[in-house]
Amino acid sequence: MTTAVWSSAAWLAEATGWLDNQLADAGRVRTGPVSQPHLRPWGTVLTAPTDRGQVWLKAPGPETAFEVPLYGLLARVAPDSVLAPIAADVDHGRLLLPDGGAPLGDGLAAEDLPDALAAVVPQYAELQRTLAAHVGDLLTFGLADMRPAALPERLDEAVEAIGRYLGRHASDDDHTALRRVAAARPTVAEWCDRLTGGVATASLDHNDLHVWNVLTTPSGRRRFYDWGDAVVAHPFASMLVTLGFLRSELHLTDDDPRLLRVRDAYLAGFAELGSRAELVTELELACRVGSIARSLVWLRAVRAERFEHAGTFARAPLETLAALLTESPFDLG
């Protein structure tokens, strides 16, 4: 699919017809017009009011079509933590979702971020523990394999693909950064070997977990959504974005008690697997190599457009990959 297809009258009419049919099957009625609030090279979203609340039709692009079957699995095995689709069409790659409430970040003051995240990450850790038994399904759906054993090759892929994407736009500093990362491959392979032999087994990594990707109802029920960046990885790699987001928003050092409170609240969900020191070491290592997966997700997003049209995000894949070698394991680049 392309933005031209998703914005065409023919596609919109067909998608609206599907939406109405699925609503009818679910005993709902659309009460207003369908609008298209999001149209990006990697997917589009339609929304409409119904007699039982707002609904959302999500049509991911080919590279993130795994979201459609993924939502079905999540709804079956972790129904209290995700939105259950009203309908899903795997063949055509689209979902119909109910409204899940406001993002957790809505109206949240910066100083309240640590408490909000510390309250939600234990629920996310529980979801990951549940999903660890379904890694085979996740890979079958098409989620990228970013488990530690695969990451050295993924590093090679990222270096080559980012260099190709930058092309004539690459500066001397860009070339230097790519060479440094490529030269670090033996060290990265050693880190990955350590993680492969670690205490936590692979699971689902949301790969973009922050307060804007958690929905909360007026009653306080929290659910995770927007799984388009998800990969199969070491579970602790999820904290790269969570802790990196908190670190960046509040300008924290890695030893700040506010950041450590969120980290420890998450690790409490894995407490029986090892000592606190073992878990902390493994989390920091998983977050560090997690920048490889993040860089490839960024690349997937920006290369849908020409470099000149990517704006401030054009160098995000390189900056994220280069963070692999920075002092902090929670540096987002």
Rank of each mutant, 00 (worst) to 15 (best):
residue 243 L to N: 01
residue 40 R to M: 13
residue 236 F to Y: 15
residue 63 E to Y: 01
residue 261 R to S: 14
residue 154 R to Q: 15
residue 158 A to Q: 09
residue 56 W to P: 01
residue 327 E to K: 11
residue 71 Y to E: 01
residue 272 E to S: 15
residue 76 R to E: 13
residue 195 L to Y: 06
residue 177 A to W: 01
residue 203 S to T: 14
residue 204 L to R: 01
residue 322 A to R: 04
residue 293 A to Y: 10
residue 119 A to T: 08
residue 191 W to S: 12
residue 197 G to S: 03
residue 201 T to A: 15
residue 276 R to W: 08
residue 108 L to S: 10
residue 147 R to C: 11
residue 317 P to V: 08
residue 314 A to G: 02
residue 88 A to M: 09
residue 242 T to I: 09
residue 102 A to L: 14
residue 232 V to D: 04
residue 236 F to H: 10
residue 291 S to R: 13
residue 333 G to C: 03
residue 122 P to Y: 05
residue 23 L to W: 04
residue 234 H to K: 05
residue 227 W to V: 08
residue 211 V to G: 00
residue 45 V to S: 11
residue 93 G to F: 00
residue 104 L to V: 01
residue 303 R to H: 12
residue 133 A to Q: 13
residue 277 A to Q: 13
residue 200 A to R: 03
residue 220 G to A: 11
residue 247 R to H: 06
residue 99 D to Q: 10
residue 251 H to G: 02
residue 211 V to E: 09
residue 101 G to M: 07
residue 242 T to C: 14
residue 193 D to F: 00
residue 245 F to G: 00
residue 35 S to I: 11
residue 254 D to Y: 08
residue 306 R to F: 00
residue 86 I to R: 00
residue 139 L to Q: 09
residue 310 A to M: 11
residue 302 V to L: 08
residue 294 R to I: 05
residue 291 S to Y: 05
residue 64 T to L: 05
residue 261 R to W: 12
residue 236 F to N: 05
residue 148 P to T: 04
residue 144 A to L: 13
residue 154 R to E: 08
residue 172 D to N: 12
residue 68 V to I: 11
residue 295 S to E: 09
residue 155 L to F: 02
residue 330 F to V: 12
residue 121 V to G: 02
residue 24 A to V: 04
residue 174 D to E: 06
residue 330 F to W: 14
residue 233 A to E: 00
residue 162 I to D: 06
residue 220 G to R: 01
residue 297 V to A: 06
residue 293 A to D: 10
residue 26 A to L: 04
residue 190 E to H: 14
residue 33 P to G: 08
residue 263 R to F: 03
residue 172 D to S: 14
residue 231 V to Y: 04
residue 116 A to N: 07
residue 245 F to R: 02
residue 257 P to C: 11
residue 190 E to F: 13
residue 221 R to D: 15
residue 89 D to K: 04
residue 241 V to K: 04
residue 57 L to S: 04
residue 46 L to E: 05
residue 60 P to N: 02
residue 22 Q to G: 03
residue 70 L to N: 06
residue 305 E to M: 13
residue 283 L to H: 06
residue 324 L to Q: 01
residue 237 A to R: 07
residue 235 P to Y: 06
residue 154 R to A: 09
residue 123 Q to F: 02
residue 61 G to N: 01
residue 86 I to C: 03
residue 16 T to W: 12
residue 87 A to L: 05
residue 185 R to E: 05
residue 60 P to D: 04
residue 187 T to K: 15
residue 301 A to Q: 14
residue 249 E to A: 14
residue 26 A to N: 07
residue 175 H to V: 09
residue 59 A to T: 00
residue 162 I to Y: 00
residue 176 T to A: 15
residue 159 V to M: 02
residue 221 R to S: 12
residue 126 E to K: 10
residue 235 P to R: 02
residue 303 R to C: 12
residue 249 E to Q: 14
residue 53 G to Q: 09
residue 217 T to H: 03
residue 300 R to C: 02
residue 235 P to Q: 07
residue 261 R to Y: 06
residue 139 L to E: 13
residue 235 P to L: 08
residue 45 V to I: 12
residue 137 D to G: 00
residue 315 R to A: 05
residue 62 P to N: 03
residue 94 R to L: 12
residue 162 I to S: 03
